[in-house]
Design a protein around this nucleic acid. Structure first.
Length: 775
DNA sequence: AGCGGCACTTAGGAGCGGACGC
DNA sequence: GCGTCCGCTCCTAAGTGCCGCT
C-alpha cells in the first residue's frame, strides 16, 4: 500500500482523471441506522490495471495446492460426491473447508475447468449452458448423466419418484456448455440490444382480462424479444395449508367474543405480533382495523381495536410455539422430512432439458403487511392467495401442472418464453405489483445475467476516466449555455452516484410507499453544504435505511449544490430537472448500456479487487488472509451503506466478554503474586493450587492468560467494528465473484472460507476463472 | 414526453440449526 | 451434554430500468 499520506482525500481538485477506482473520501461524520459509528474511509491508492481475462478460457490451467480435501470438521455432505466415479467430486470448491490449504484438485488429471466439472458432475443441477439460446434440436444424444447423485440424502428417495421425464443427455449438455463458452463472449455485448416489441404484445397486460384461459395462445410477447428458453417444465406452486381454527376467545371490553374462522384467523395474525413494535404503531393499528373491521362487519360487537384484548390468543400461540420447541429431535426431523417430501416435486423445473432449482415455489401465506420504515400500508391484511390468482408460465408442450387444491383452477396458463418466471400473482397489498416464482440463483439463466452485469461493470473501466473528466468539466458550465442547469445537475448527480455509490432514485408513490430517496429524488433538506467544501447527507434510502454521512467534495460540486438549493424550500427536489430516465439516457450516450446502477457494481468490485491486491501479503496464514478479505468486504459494505441492526443480545454479549476479561485479569494478578513469592522463596498464596508451580510454569501460564485476554479484546473490537455493517449484501450482489475466486486461487484460501453453500452454487459460473483475473 | 406495467435485482430481518464453549 | 450464539437460508419488501401506451 502506498504511504499513509496518499490515502488522505484530496479536497477539491479533480484528482481522479486518471484513476479508475472510486475515491472514498474520509467521513467526517457517520451515523448508521443504529447508534454505531462506521470506521472512516480512506482513498484507495491506484492499482495497476489488468487486461480482462475470460473466465471461459478452458486452456487455462488450474493452480495446484489450493483447496484442501474435506476435513472432519466440515465434512462434505455425502451426497455432494456420492455419485462420482469417473468424475471429480464436482467442484473442489464445493467441498467444505479446512484451515490449511490443500490440493486444489490433485486427483483430477483432466484439465477441465472446475465449474465445467461442477456443472456436469453436480448431479443435482446439470447446468444449462449460459448461452440459453442454444438450439436443443441440433444436439445429439448419447449417455445419461447422473441427475440425482448430489441430492441431499433425505431427498433422494422422493426425488426418484418425482423425476421428471427429461432427457438429461450428457453429451448434449456438454456440447451446449461448450457452445455456451464460445458464444458467450460475443453475446455479452450484444445481448442488451433488444428489438422493439410489436404493438400486438399487450394481450396479457394487467387489468385487461385475457379472453379466457389462453392455454393454446402463442407467447404473448412478440417474436422479436429474445427467447429465454425453448422448453420449460415445472409443477407449479405450493400453497400454504388452510387455516385451522383454535377456538381460543379473545376479549372485548373484558368479555370473551365468538369469531368466525375468517375473523379469528386475522385476529390471530395480530395477536401473534403482540411482542413486536408494530402493534404500538398507530398507522399499523389503523390499517389493521380498516381491514379487519370489514371482515367483522358493521354490526359486530367489536367496534374499536383499543378495547380488544388479544392476550388469550397470544398465550395460546406461545404455547403452541413452546410445544413445537419441546418436540424431540426425531419428531422434528420427521416433520421436516415430510414437508420436504411433499414439496420435492415443486423444487425443480426443467428448462431446455436441464433440471434447475426453483427459487420461491411457495405462495406467500396470508398475514399482516409489515412494511419497512414508515410504510403507509403497514398493518394491511395480506389476503390468502388462491389458485385463481395464479398465472402459470410453462412450455407449450409441457403438461399443465395440476392445481394442488382440488376443484380449483389456475387463473391463466401462458407459454411466454421471453420471460424467465414460472408463475406469478398480483400482490394483495397493491395489485399492480406482481410477485414471481423464478428459478434459483444457481440456474444458468440467473448465472448468465449475473455475469452480464459484471461484464457491463467491467466495461465501465474503459470509459470511467472520460466520464469523470466530462462530468468534472460540466460542473462549471457557463450559465448562459443552452440547458446549462440540466447539464450541471446531470454532472453533479453522476458525481454523487460515482463517488458515494448512491442509488439512482426512481420516482415513488408517496401514498403507497415509504418516503425514501435516491440520488435523483434527493430533497434540499437531505443535503447540507458546510463551508468550505463539505456535504452532509442525511436521508432514508432503500428499506428506510438511514444514510448519514459527511463527505468532502470538489469545490465546484459544493458550489453547484448550493446553487441548486438556492431559493427552494427544504422539501423541494434538489435536482429539479432530473429523473432517472433523463440521467440514464445521458449515461447511455457515454457508454452503451450504462445506467446509474452500474456505477455501484463497478465501484464495489474495483474497490474489492484493489484492496485485496494491495493488502494481501505473502506471509500470514489462511485466517489472516480471510481477515483481509473481510476487511475489504467491509469497506465495500460501508461504501454501499449496507447496514444491519445491532444483534438483539449485542450488549449482553459484550458485557459477558468484558466480564471474562476481568476474571482473567484477576487470574493474572494472582499468578504475578505467586511468581514474586516463588522467586523470593516464599510459599505462594495460591489458593487452589495443590502443588507449588515453578517460576517457569507460572510465567508460561501468565503468557497464556495474556494471550487469552488479547484474543477476547480483539473479538470485542471486531464485533463492535462490524455490528452495524452487513457484509453479505455486497458479496452477493455487487462483488464480481471472479475477483474472489481468483484471489482465493492465488493466495491458497479455500473458497468455502468466503462463500457459503448457496453462494458457491450461485457463483458456479465464476469458479473456473483464471487465477490472474483482475476486475 | 411521461406514465405505468412488467420483469428482474437488491435488500434487511426472522428464524433455524449446527458449531462452539463451558 | 447442554445452552448459547452465530452464520446461513428463507422470506418478501423495495429497489432499478426497460418498454409500450396514451
Amino acid at each position: 500500500m502506498a504511504d499513509q499520506n496518499s490515502t488522505i482525500p484530496k479536497p477539491s481538485q479533480s484528482d481522479h482523471e486518471d484513476d479508475d477506482e472510486p475515491l472514498l473520501f474520509k467521513r467526517h461524520n457517520t451515523a448508521s441506522k443504529a447508534k454505531g459509528k462506521m470506521a472512516p474511509l480512506r482513498a484507495i491508492p491506484k492499482a495497476s490495471t489488468s487486461s480482462p481475462v475470460s473466465s471461459y478460457d478452458q486452456s487455462k490451467q488450474l493452480p495446484e495446492q489450493i483447496v484442501p480435501s474435506a476435513s472432519a470438521k466440515h465434512p462434505a455432505p455425502a451426497e455432494e460426491n456420492s455419485d462420482y466415479d469417473d468424475e471429480k467430486p464436482l467442484c473442489a470448491f464445493m467441498k467444505a473447508g479446512s484451515d490449511e490449504a490443500g490440493d486444489w484438485d490433485s486427483e483430477d488429471d483432466d484439465n477441465q475447468p472446475l465449474s465445467s466439472r461442477y456443472l456436469k458432475g453436480k448431479g443435482k443441477t446439470p447446468k444449462r449452458p449460459l448461452d440459453h439460446q442454444t438450439n436443443i434440436s441440433e444436439q445429439s444424444s448419447a449417455k445419461k448423466p447422473k441427475v440425482l447423485g448430489s441430492l441431499p440424502k433425505n431427498k433422494q428417495a422422493s426425488s426418484t419418484k418425482h423425476e421428471p421425464e427429461v432427457d438429461y443427455d450428457d453429451s448434449r449438455l456438454a456440447h451446449r456448455m461448450k457452445k455456451a463458452r464460445s458464444v458467450n463472449k460475443s453475446s455479452l455485448t450484444t445481448k442488451k440490444k433488444v428489438p422493439k416489441i410489436s404493438s400486438s404484445s399487450n394481450t396479457f397486460k394487467k387489468g385487461k382480462k385475457p379472453d379466457k384461459v389462453s392455454k393454446d395462445q402463442p407467447s404473448s410477447k412478440s417474436d422479436n424479444k429474445p427467447k429465454k428458453w425453448t422448453s420449460l417444465v415445472h409443477n407449479g406452486v405450493v400453497f400454504p395449508p388452510p387455516y385451522e381454527p383454535h377456538g381460543v376467545k379473545m376479549l372485548y371490553n373484558g368479555k370473551p367474543i365468538d369469531l368466525t374462522t375468517e375473523q379469528e384467523e386475522v385476529a390471530t395474525m395480530f395477536a401473534m405480533m403482540t411482542d413486536t413494535d408494530y402493534v404500538n404503531k398507530q398507522r399499523f393499528r389503523d390499517n389493521f382495523w380498516m381491514d379487519w373491521s370489514k371482515l367483522l362487519g358493521e354490526e359486530h360487537v367489536i367496534q374499536n381495536l383499543d378495547a380488544c384484548n388479544f392476550q388469550p390468543i397470544y398465550e395460546w400461540w406461545c404455547q403452541e410455539k413452546e410445544k413445537k420447541k419441546q418436540m424431540s429431535m426425531e419428531e422434528k426431523k420427521a416433520v421436516k422430512e415430510e414437508k420436504l417430501k411433499q414439496e420435492e416435486k415443486y423444487k425443480w423445473a426443467t428448462i431446455d432439458g436441464v433440471k434447475e432449482e426453483v427459487q420461491s415455489f411457495r405462495v406467500e401465506p396470508p398475514g399482516l403487511f409489515r412494511g419497512r420504515g414508515e410504510q403507509p400500508q403497514s398493518g394491511r391484511l395480506k389476503r390468502r392467495i388462491v389458485p385463481s390468482d395464479i398465472t402459470i408460465n410453462i412450455g407449450k408442450d409441457a403438461p399443465v401442472p395440476e392445481c394442488p387444491i382440488p376443484g380449483k383452477s389456475w387463473k391463466q396458463i401462458r407459454h411466454d418464453n421471453t420471460v424467465s418466471w414460472l408463475a406469478c400473482w398480483g400482490d394483495p397489498i397493491s395489485e399492480e405489483k406482481t410477485k414471481y416464482v423464478m428459478l434459483g440463483g444457481s440456474s444458468s439463466l440467473r448465472g448468465q445475467s449475473d455475469k452480464d452485469k459484471y461484464e457491463k461493470a467491467r466495461e465501465l473501466k474503459d470509459y470511467i476516466n472520460d466520464i469523470r473528466s466530462a462530468y468534472t468539466r460540466a460542473f462549471t458550465i457557463p450559465s448562459k449555455e443552452d440547458g446549462a442547469n440540466l447539464k450541471r445537475q446531470i454532472a453533479v448527480a453522476t458525481y454523487l452516484i460515482d463517488r458515494f455509490a448512491l442509488r439512482a432514485g426512481n420516482k415513488k408513490d408517496v401514498n403507497e410507499e415509504a418516503d425514501t430517496v435516491g440520488c435523483c429524488t434527493l430533497k434540499v433538506e437531505n443535503v447540507k453544504a458546510i463551508a468550505p467544501n463539505l456535504l452532509e447527507f442525511d436521508f432514508l434510502g432503500k428499506d428506510s435505511i438511514k444514510y448519514h454521512q459527511t463527505h468532502q467534495v470538489e469545490l465546484p460540486v459544493y458550489k453547484a449544490i448550493k446553487q441548486f438549493q438556492n431559493g427552494k424550500s427544504s422539501s423541494d427536489k434538489l435536482f429539479d430537472q432530473l429523473d432517472t430516465n433523463i440521467l440514464n439516457a445521458h449515461l447511455k450516450e457515454l457508454m452503451p448500456g450504462l445506467t446509474a446502477k452500474v456505477f455501484r457494481t463497478y465501484n464495489a468490485s474495483i474497490t474489492l479487487d484493489n484492496m485485496l491486491n494491495e493488502k494481501t501479503k505473502k506471509e500470514g496464514d489462511v485466517s489472516a488472509r480471510v481477515e483481509i478479505y473481510k476487511n475489504a468486504n467491509k469497506k465495500v459494505a460501508i461504501l454501499c451503506n449496507h447496514q444491519r441492526t445491532e444483534p438483539k443480545t449485542f450488549g449482553e454479549q459484550i458485557s459477558k466478554l468484558n466480564k471474562k476479561i476481568e476474571d482473567l485479569k484477576g487470574v493474572m494478578e494472582d499468578l504475578e503474586t505467586d511468581l514474586v513469592k516463588e522467586r523470593k522463596g516464599k510459599s505462594p498464596l495460591n489458593r487452589k493450587q495443590k502443588k507449588n508451580l515453578t517460576p517457569d510454569v507460572l510465567e508460561k501460564k501468565m503468557a497464556q492468560t495474556a494471550k487469552k485476554i488479547e484474543a477476547i479484546e480483539s473479538k470485542i473490537a471486531d464485533k463492535e467494528d462490524k455490528k452495524n455493517v452487513a457484509l453479505e449484501t455486497s458479496k452477493v450482489n455487487y462483488l464480481d465473484p471472479r475477483i474472489t475466486v481468483a484471489w482465493c486461487k492465488r493466495h491458497e484460501v479455500p473458497i468455502q472460507k468466503i462463500f457459503s453453500k448457496i453462494q458457491l452454487k450461485k457463483f458456479a459460473w465464476a469458479m473456473d476463472v483464471d487465477p490472474d483475473f483482475r476486475f
